[in-house]
Design a protein around this nucleic acid. Structure first.
Length: 421
RNA sequence: GGGUCGGUGCCCGAGAGGACAAAGGGAGCGGGCUGUAAACCCGCCGGCUUAGCCUACGGAGGUUCAAAUCCUCCCCGGCCCA
C-alpha cells in the first residue's frame, strides 16, 4: 500500500481529524517505511474498546508497510495527562503501573504483529525518563519551551478556566510527551505521532521540540473522538467500560455491545474499528439498508471486532450462545453447553442446589436479582425464565435441570448459568 | 462571627404530629409492540422468615399512645450582613 493510499484510506474511514501538512506527510509515507508512535495510557491493566481505534490505526500503518512503536507510558502513568479531563488524576504507584503495563503488553501482542520485517515494538518512556535529572530536564527541555505556548493548549486552558485548577505536575505533562517524541525520533527515527484528537496539543508540543532540538520537521496525526449517536459515551455501558480482557467483559457481552450498535453509528464503526476494506463496507451497508431490521451490518461489526480481539473460535461459540438466548433454539444440554463460558456462570454442587432450591434464593445468590424481594417482584412481572420456561410463581422449584445446566434468564439480556458438578 | 432558609428514597422534589415505605417527575427494571432498536402503552421500583415484620426522611438525644413532621444540641449546604 502506498503512502497515498494509507492516508486516503484513513480519510475515507473518517479517521483524520488534525494532521500536519498533508503534502509533506503523504510524501514521507510514500518515500518508504516510516516509524510512527502511539502512546497508550497505562492507567488500567486492560485495554477497552476506546483504545481499539488507536491500536488498529497502528495496525493499519503496519499493514501499509510502516513500523509502529507502541508506547506504554510508564512515566505518563506516574505523572498524569490532563488532556480531556476536568479534574486532577490520581497518581499510580509503581507496582500497579507495572502490573498494568504487563497486562496491556500481552493484549497488544494479540492484536499487532511484533515479528517480521516491520515488526511493531513496545516502548516504555520510563526507560528514558527515569534517569533524567531535574537539572537536565530544565536545561535540555524546559529551556526550549515557553510557558506562553503551553498556556495556549486546550488541555491546560480548560483546566485553568475550571474551578479545580491544574497542578504543576500535570501542567508539565506535555513536556514529558514532547520529550518522548524527541527521544523516539533520535533513537528510532520516529517521524510521526498519532493519537486521539485530545492529544493534538501534546503532539504539536513534541513536533516543536524536535524542530528546535534536532532541526527536523516531524509529523502528527489525530483521529476524531469516538462518539455515539445516542449521546452516551462510546465504549461505556451502565456496568462500566467494555474491556478487552475477557475476565472483565465476557466475550459474549463484548459481542453484544456491538450487536446493539445504533443504526446511525454502525457504518462509522465498521470503518473505524474493523480492517475490512472500505469498498466491502459499502456493500455491507447497502445490504443493510434494504433490510435494516435484520441488522446484518451490526452482525458483521460484532463478528469482526470480537474476532480481532478474542479470535474467531470465540466468535462462533458466542454466536451459538446468542442463538439460544434469543433465537428460541431448544434448550438441549448441547445448546446449553455452548452458553458455558460466554455468560456469567456459577459452578455449584447439587447439594447446594438443594439448599437453594427456592428460585428466589438462586436469583439472589447468582446476582441476577439484587435481593430476594426484587427476585419475587421480577417473577411476578413475568421476567424470569428457567431453561427457557417462563416462571409465574415464586414457589416453583427449579427441578428442570437439563443435563448439568440450569440457565436463569432475566428479561431478554441478563443471564446466569448454573453448572452442576 | 451574626442572621436566615434548607438537608427527604439512585437523582430532582412534595409532605409540616396518626390515613407514610413517604405525592409527582426522571433514571432503572420487567412485560407488550418492534429490529436483542427508537418511540409508545402497562406494571414494578428499601429489606426480610413477605396477608406480617424490620429499617429508613443529615446525626445524636428528647416530648408524645403515635414524629419525616414538635423541642434541644451537633454536622453540612445556599443566601444576606460583617
Amino acid at each position: 500500500m502506498s503512502g497515498n493510499t494509507i492516508f486516503d484510506d484513513l480519510r475515507s474511514r473518517s479517521l483524520l481529524y488534525d494532521y500536519t501538512d498533508e503534502k509533506s506527510l503523504k510524501d514521507l509515507l510514500l518515500a518508504g517505511p516510516v516509524t510512527l508512535y502511539h502512546g497508550i495510557d497505562p492507567t488500567q491493566s486492560s485495554l477497552h474498546v476506546g483504545n481499539l481505534v488507536g491500536v488498529l490505526l497502528a495496525k493499519r500503518f503496519q499493514q501499509a508497510g510502516h513500523r509502529p512503536l507502541l508506547l506504554l507510558g510508564g512515566a505518563t502513568g506516574l505523572v498524569g495527562d490532563p488532556s480531556g479531563r476536568t479534574s486532577e488524576r490520581n497518581l499510580l504507584d509503581v507496582e500497579t503501573l507495572n502490573d498494568n503495563i504487563a497486562g496491556l503488553q500481552s493484549q497488544l501482542s494479540g492484536l499487532i504483529d511484533f515479528d517480521g520485517t516491520n515488526a511493531a515494538r513496545l516502548v516504555n518512556n520510563l526507560d528514558w525518563t527515569r534517569s533524567v535529572t531535574l537539572i537536565d530536564f530544565l536545561r535540555d527541555i524546559g529551556k526550549h519551551v515557553t510557558v506562553n505556548q503551553m498556556l495556549t493548549k486546550d488541555s491546560v486552558r480548560i483546566r485553568m478556566a475550571g474551578s479545580h485548577g491544574i497542578s504543576f505536575t500535570e501542567f508539565t505533562y506535555m513536556l514529558f510527551q514532547a520529550f518522548d517524541y524527541q527521544w523516539l525520533f533520535k533513537n528510532f527515527n520516529c517521524q510521526l505521532q498519532v493519537g486521539g484528537s485530545d492529544q493534538w496539543g501534546n503532539i504539536t508540543a513534541g513536533i516543536d521540540l524536535v524542530r528546535r532540538l534536532e532541526g527536523q520537521a516531524v509529523h502528527g496525526l489525530t483521529w476524531p473522538l469516538m462518539t455515539r449517536a445516542d449521546g452516551t459515551k462510546f465504549g461505556k455501558t451502565v456496568d462500566g467500560a467494555v474491556w478487552l480482557d475477557p475476565k472483565r467483559t465476557l466475550p459474549y457481552e463484548f459481542h453484544q455491545y456491538f450487536i446493539n450498535t445504533d443504526d446511525r453509528d454502525v457504518q462509522r464503526l465498521l470503518l473505524q474499528l474493523t480492517l475490512l476494506p472500505v469498498s466491502e463496507i459499502a456493500d455491507i451497508m447497502a445490504n443493510h439498508s434494504h433490510e435494516p431490521h435484520k441488522r446484518s451490518a451490526q452482525g458483521v461489526l460484532a463478528d469482526e471486532v470480537c474476532g480481532l480481539v478474542h479470535g474467531h473460535d470465540t466468535v462462533k461459540s458466542v454466536k451459538l450462545a446468542a442463538e439460544l438466548l434469543f433465537g428460541g433454539t431448544e434448550f438441549t444440554g448441547e445448546a446449553l453447553s455452548a452458553v458455558q463460558g460466554v455468560v456469567p456462570e456459577t459452578k455449584i454442587s447439587s447439594s447446594i442446589v438443594d439448599a437453594l432450591e427456592p428460585l428466589v434464593d438462586m436469583l439472589a445468590f447468582s446476582g441476577v436479582c439484587s435481593s430476594k424481594s426484587e427476585a419475587r417482584r421480577t417473577i411476578q412481572a413475568g421476567g424470569i425464565r428457567v431453561n427457557g420456561r417462563r416462571i409465574r410463581s415464586a414457589d416453583e422449584s427449579v427441578t428442570p435441570v437439563v443435563s448439568r445446566f440450569l440457565l436463569l434468564q432475566r428479561g431478554r439480556k441478563l443471564h446466569h448459568l448454573f453448572v452442576l458438578e
